Amino acid sequence: MITIDGSEGEGGGQVVRNACALSLVTGTPVRIENVRARRSKPGLMRQHVTAIEAACTVGNACCEGLSVGSSELTFQPGHVVPGEYRFSVGTAGSTGLVLQTVLMPLILADKPSRLVLEGGTHNMLAPPFDFIARVFLPIINRMGPRVEARLIRHGFYPRGGGRIEVDINPAPLAPIDCIERGALLERSACAYFAGLPFDIADREIKAAQKGLGWSDRECFVRELPEDQGPGNILLLEARFEHCTEIVSGFGELGVPADRVAKRAVGRMVGYLDSEAFAGPYLADQLLLPFALVGGCSFTTVKPSQHSFTASDVIAQFLGRRCAFTPQQDGSHLMEIR
């Protein structure tokens, strides 16, 4: 059994998700202590419990210490069984983070699966659905499997109520190299809002357009049905020949719209000014599949503490380390060693 100190490194929920996924893939039991010890509210939250419950269901696993607020757990994996599953977070907890926990075990299974995930689809501290569908999954599909995700209903914090559907057609993972992103093909900025005044989204998109210097044709506002709110998100998207980057900014109570836009613009400008293939959030998500297959590489911006922590967890299960080497152009080359 592997024992992981959840307080080390980034000290968040990613440790739990990656550990459970790797436990199912390798058949190795794991004990995690000091779960999310570095967070303002330590221990398991509802979305982490749902993610582990999902892992237990698809992998015939059992878990001791599985409750909201728990700081220790022991996960004993079983045999992964593909099929049709439905999981509800019950709050605005991220459906994408639940998907992250069970995706690789189901991709490596011997038959297709279909997931229905209910909860948050666009909430802070988690990749929005658009990022998963248009940034992350296309890279997974290049490795052999076919994964398609559909957004049925938006779910914003704090109400939740969103729904996504995911079809997973497994295939052996093939190593790929993601070094150059190619020429810029298209870019857009969109402010979505539901159950809120139009002025909020309008001010966001105007501030984003001014900060990026993009045209009127590339910047727009979209109103969602009122019953899917209240909620607001600004999405900045840049599509290249070989990859796509999406940067998001979430509307928050008491935070001016122009400040939301300024934060997102700063992150997008930083990515566009680099030569890297993957932004920081895509880099985090690629580490697990790339380590499982081995022989893969990608370039990224300055690696985050999230990435280093994920690398440490991966090394304990697979004996492979995700190594980041600075390049002359300012990017970093990630290789599996």
Rank of each mutant, 00 (worst) to 15 (best):
S40R: 09
K41V: 15
P42T: 08
P42L: 12
P42C: 10
P42M: 10
P42G: 11
M45V: 15
R46Y: 02
R46N: 07
R46D: 13
Q47A: 09
Q47S: 07
H48N: 12
H48D: 14
H48S: 10
H48P: 10
V49S: 04
V49I: 12
T50Y: 00
A51C: 09
A51D: 06
E53S: 10
A54R: 02
A54N: 02
A55E: 06
A55N: 05
C56V: 03
C56H: 02
T57M: 11
V58W: 01
V58C: 03
G59Q: 01
G59T: 01
G59Y: 01
N60A: 11
C62E: 14
C63W: 00
C63I: 00
E64R: 11
G65R: 04
G65I: 02
L66R: 00
L66E: 01
S67L: 02
S67Y: 08
V68Y: 00
V68F: 00
G69F: 00
S70H: 02
S71T: 15
E72R: 14
E72P: 02
L73Q: 07
T74E: 13
F75P: 03
Q76V: 14
H79G: 01
V80R: 03
P82H: 09
G83C: 08
G83F: 08
E84C: 12
E84L: 05
Y85C: 01
Y85P: 00
R86S: 14
T91P: 02
A92K: 06
A92G: 07
A92L: 08
G93W: 10
G93C: 10
G96R: 06
G96S: 15
G96T: 11
L97Y: 09
V98E: 04
V98I: 14
T101I: 08
V102I: 15
V102C: 09
V102H: 05
L103V: 11
M104P: 06
L106F: 04
I107P: 01
I107T: 11
L108P: 03
A109D: 01
A109F: 01
A109S: 15
K111E: 13
K111G: 03
P112N: 08
R114K: 13
R114E: 11
L115V: 01
L115M: 09
V116M: 12
L117C: 00
E118K: 12
G119W: 03
G120R: 05
G120D: 04
G120Y: 03
G120I: 05
T121S: 12
T121M: 11
H122F: 10
N123K: 08
N123W: 02
N123A: 14
M124Y: 07
L125N: 12
A126F: 07
P128K: 08
F129C: 13
F129Y: 15
F136Y: 15
L137G: 05
L137C: 07
L137P: 04
I140M: 06
I140G: 04
N141C: 02
R142N: 01
M143V: 06
M143K: 04
G144C: 06
G144P: 05
G144H: 06
P145V: 03
P145M: 02
R146Y: 08
V147E: 07
E148G: 06
E148R: 14
A149F: 03
R150S: 09
I152H: 06
I152E: 13
I152R: 09
R153L: 00
R153Q: 06
H154N: 12
H154W: 12
H154D: 11
H154E: 12
G155L: 04
Y157D: 12
P158K: 10
P158F: 10
R159I: 10
R159L: 11
R159M: 11
